[in-house]
Design a binder for these strands. Structure first.
Lengths: 238, 238
DNA sequence: CGTACGTTTGACTCTGTTCAATTGCCGTGG
DNA sequence: CCACGGCAATTGAACAGAGTCAAACGTACG
């Protein structure tokens, strides 16, 4: 048994590589054990499939274990707005707590896997694990802060600034997960980027081309390479 | 703070008219009593004064008891983005939980009064009052949903639609508080509206004038009267 | 009661959209 | 393996909506 690779059945969180990004942040090993017992159901979501849809009854949050998601809301007239892109360790479904119904659609942009977190149980155990409650509140609050940043982006930035801000945001999140901050593959289309940024896909494409012209980045379809991070940042004075 | 006036009344929440809008929603009288003992510090904020500023250390949430606030964030280059307008019964400061620092400035747009809610104490008692915890989570989640709606507005609506959506939103909130839904006074300037909606003040003014042309509303400076709610709603197909 | 600020309106400019044509890429099936 | 079809991305040209600049007016606040 000693040199056997153990397959995590019991406490999935304890052995998960995303421990430092996800819900267990700040918990001791005993507490992680308790949380792990609650989060014991995984679910695979193929590229293009829905994790959940608007209007369905809310039971669980989902933590992205592997893959990439987008969430979006719909107007009556069919217009849609991408509200976020979600990568490993991030929680999906926080919007649904309020009315106990999902308020957006969540779609996998590549073959993905999520951990299901039954929300009422999470609330229960967070009563006895204060640090879990605290961390959960911070996650929700962080979501609000993130949304305010998007409001700033949509409300007062020009096309190029929006795209750069978006790239820098992705870059930072990849880096935090151990991937390159200057070399990555976009999982979403130009249209999805544009929708998120309040721009048309052609405008996104033109902005990419311009940054490439200036040799700040190279764009090969979905593959992005950032050559000059400083100049990129200077353009949005970060 | 020097311009703070604190008053101590036993269980302020129990006797507060905002009981059904604010934190105490869904609590029994005993629980309201406990909450009221925690929320015993009121603070007056004169028009134009700051309730809190970006970067200062977070201790408390604030519930608006009387008056009207705006919150906004600042870019390095001085650009600002209004992130919300807040009326009676609404909580200010949810953004600050995440980094334990306020991420925005909050300014009173008229002489106002807030109830201070020490956050760590709120977390403590919410451990023993599950319905308080549940309601607090719903408030935070509702904030996220609201922000997503603003993202939709900023990302895919035209100037007139944005303004109408804004008016309908205010109208509904006034109505919920027992005020007229068709006749109200704006507390903010055209510039503040524009900033919130991602428009210039001139564009806001023109959109108001156009709606008045069409006899859908009348605008007398800050005083708005909605003559034809149906036509107003039809323009954004709600 | 006067002044400073907020608002309205007009004329012009510019950024991003729309429409359209073309190219590039990738998976499927012959 | 290559050819095909369909989707995604790029690029150009014309257009429209909102921004900018400027002037005049109204009001409410001290």
């Amino acid at each position: 048994m000693s040199n056997t690779i153990s397959i995590n059945i019991k406490s999935s969180c304890a052995s998960c590589g995303l421990r430092d990004l996800c819900l267990p942040v700040g918990l001791n090993s005993n507490e992680i054990e308790i949380l792990g017992n609650l989060v014991n159901h995984k679910r695979a979501v193929k590229r293009g499939k829905y994790l959940h849809r608007t209007g369905t009854s809310f039971q669980s949050l989902y933590a992205v274990r592997r893959g990439f998601f987008k969430t979006f809301i719909l107007e009556k007239d069919g217009r849609q707005q991408v509200t976020g892109f979600h990568m490993t360790g991030e929680l999906i479904g926080l919007d649904a707590i309020s009315a106990e119904i999902y308020t957006c659609d969540a779609v996998a942009l590549e073959d993905s896997e999520v951990c299901e977190v039954p929300f009422s149980k999470l609330e229960e155990i967070s009563r006895v694990i204060p640090s879990l409650m605290k961390h959960f509140h911070k996650i929700m609050s962080g979501e609000i802060v993130k949304d305010h940043e998007v409001m700033m982006l949509l409300g007062s930035m020009k096309a190029e600034e929006r795209l750069i801000t978006f790239l820098l945001n992705l870059s930072g999140r990849f880096s935090k997960r151990g991937y390159s901050s200057v070399d990555f593959v976009l999982r979403m289309t130009r249209e999805e980027i544009g929708n998120y940024l309040g721009l048309k896909l052609e405008t996104v494409s033109r902005a990419f081309s311009k940054l490439q012209e200036e040799s700040i980045i190279s764009v090969n379809n979905k593959h992005i390479h950032i050559h000059d991070m400083d100049r990129l940042k200077n353009k949005v004075d970060v």
